[in-house]
Design a protein around this nucleic acid. Structure first.
Length: 479
RNA sequence: GGCGGCGUACCCAAGCGGUUAAGGGAGCAGUCUGCAAAACUGCGAUUCAUCGGUUCAAGUCCGAUCGCCGCCUCCA
């Protein structure tokens, strides 16, 4: 295997990622289940899905854990506002998340643990932190004392003094230091509670990831990922509490991805400029879900994962066109060739060189834009070979194999381009009507009645349906 | 205020010291076609925000300037 280089936030540079055992543990911070997922969540899920797939493509066994935060202030607040149990709120949005992921073609992680199923483990960790003096108890709350850890700030490269100077840190007079964070919170009346050595309460946010990562992946995780907004304080806190507890490195390599922006501003709840995944699918409901899911994936993977990616309908349209190119090649291959034809000599070597380029791109910190470019270049090359009459059908499998890693090219070309799609412009027009018009036009063309033929074509165009006359005389629908 | 990132053709976007600056979209031209559309092919930046510097060699390293964004508070 060629070496894989990953940008490790801990080192702030690309480093070779070693996997001598052939096994890799991957932990990604999941959602807090208090609302539907937006495009930013989709980017995160798709990036790590592709990363996981690529590690497997390289022959590694990946244990991928992505948690659900199913107890949190925001969940409690929503439940209170809607006067229903917090558990119901959490379950609803976990289900919504799962539905969105299915639409996006994201494979389920190996394990999808819920925070509330791991309370005993969290308590066990907190107890030791209290016992060793790294954490202290105040009125049923337990806080981690940041000043006990000399390495605090290694991930985010922030110095405690500088953080305080920002004056944006919440001041809780009871804490010994404003940066100290809650491991356990005493419950207020009406809130969900679990028994603990410090009285009834619930866990703080950061401790759950440490507990679940250790539970399923051991004390040191190979790769831990999330959005770059999690670097501080979430991941920084995970590191201190975990390493103080185990005395071992918590994570070998931290991977953080950039944001989805709209008009170059971070998509976020507080700015109100976010788009729910479900709403985007709704907006493009004239595409079959599997088709639009891939368009979204292609778009999200067309920018390197560490950079910001700006969302716009123009960018989405551009992605659709780009993916169409690839599907058109697949369709052209299917229609004109088959595996039974012997491949011309030398083609193997050409494909091997493209394969090497593709893998080099992915090995270079998962450079998916570069990998996509390799695919487009091969596409053009194969098209010229096809025009020359060469038998090149067997490259199809290569495209599909690459596509499987990225979650693309998994739909049949027929479905992709022509299968009974309905235009949003003319929901009143049935598939049968369209077919009848086309048959009528076929007849007109047969008697060389171009005026009628063109009139029908125009009528179809007005309803958003593009017709394509093929060399063999048949007509097919395209949108 | 502290820390970090970005600025490459009309748009999106790779490239991170060394042949002619990837790729996609759009546009234009050609092939095909009854005409279209679609598809395919071809064309497109002497130049990488600006100004200096280092180097035999710089979008690529260093410094300054301008502009944009993010983190420092829940956040993918």
């Amino acid at each position: 295997m060629t070496p894989l280089y990953l940008f490790n936030t801990l080192a702030s540079k690309k480093q070779p990622f070693l996997y001598p055992s052939g096994r890799v543990t991957l932990y990604v911070c999941g959602i807090t289940a208090y609302d539907h997922c937006h495009l930013g969540h989709a980017r995160s899920a798709i990036i790590f899905d592709a990363i996981r797939n690529y590690l497997e493509y390289k022959g590694l066994t990946v244990c991928y854990v992505k948690n659900f935060t199913d107890i949190d202030d925001k969940i409690i607040h929503r439940a209170a506002a809607e006067q229903r149990p917090w558990k119901e709120v959490a379950e609803q949005f976990i289900a919504s998340y799962n539905a969105d992921m299915a639409r996006l073609g994201v494979r389920p992680p190996t394990v999808s643990p819920k925070a509330t199923d791991h309370i005993p483990r969290m308590i066990q960790i907190i107890e030791k932190l209290v016992a060793t003096g790294a954490a202290y108890v105040i009125e049923g709350d337990v806080y981690f004392e940041v000043s006990t850890a000399i390495s605090y700030g290694i991930l985010s490269r922030k110095k405690p003094e500088q953080l305080l100077a920002g004056a944006r840190v919440e001041i809780d007079e009871r804490k010994r230091n404003p940066l100290d964070f809650a491991l356990w919170k005493a419950s207020k009346p009406g809130e969900p509670v679990w028994d603990s050595p410090w009285g009834p309460g619930r866990p703080g946010w950061h401790i759950e990831c440490s507990a679940m990562a250790m539970e399923y992946l051991g004390e040191t995780v190979d790769i831990h990922g999330g959005g770059s907004d999690l670097i501080f304080p979430h991941h920084e806190n995970e590191i201190v509490q975990s390493e103080t507890y185990t005395g071992k490195p918590f994570v070998s390599c931290f991977i953080h991805h950039g944001f989805v922006t709209i008009a170059d501003e971070k998509m976020s709840k507080s700015l109100g400029n976010f788009l729910f995944i479900r709403d985007i699918f709704e907006q493009f409901a004239h595409f079959p879900e599997a088709v639009f899911g891939e368009v979204l994936r292609f778009y999200l993977l067309s920018v390197h994962y560490r950079s910001a990616i700006d969302f716009s309908s123009d960018n989405l349209r551009s992605a659709k066109q780009g993916l169409d190119n690839l599907y058109t090649l697949l369709q052209r291959l299917d229609e004109t060739q088959s595996l039974s034809q012997p491949a011309p000599p030398g083609l193997d070597d050409v494909l091997a060189s493209y394969e090497a380029k593709w893998e080099a791109a992915m090995d270079d910190d998962f450079n998916t834009p570069e990998a996509l470019a390799v695919m487009q270049t091969l596409r053009a090359y194969i098209n010229t070979r096809l025009s020359a009459g060469d038998a090149v059908y067997f490259v199809r499998a290569l495209f599909v194999r690459w596509g499987a890693v990225l979650g693309l090219l998994q739909v049949s070309p027929e479905v992709w381009r022509y299968d009974g799609w309905l235009s949003p412009l003319v929901e009143c027009i049935s598939e049968a009507t369209v077919q009848a018009w086309i048959a009528e036009r076929e007849a007109a063309r047969g008697r060389r009645d171009w005026a009628t033929s063109d009139a029908i074509r125009k009528r179809l165009a007005e309803t958003g349906i593009v017709i394509e006359d093929r060399p063999d005389g048949t007509t097919r629908i395209k949108r």
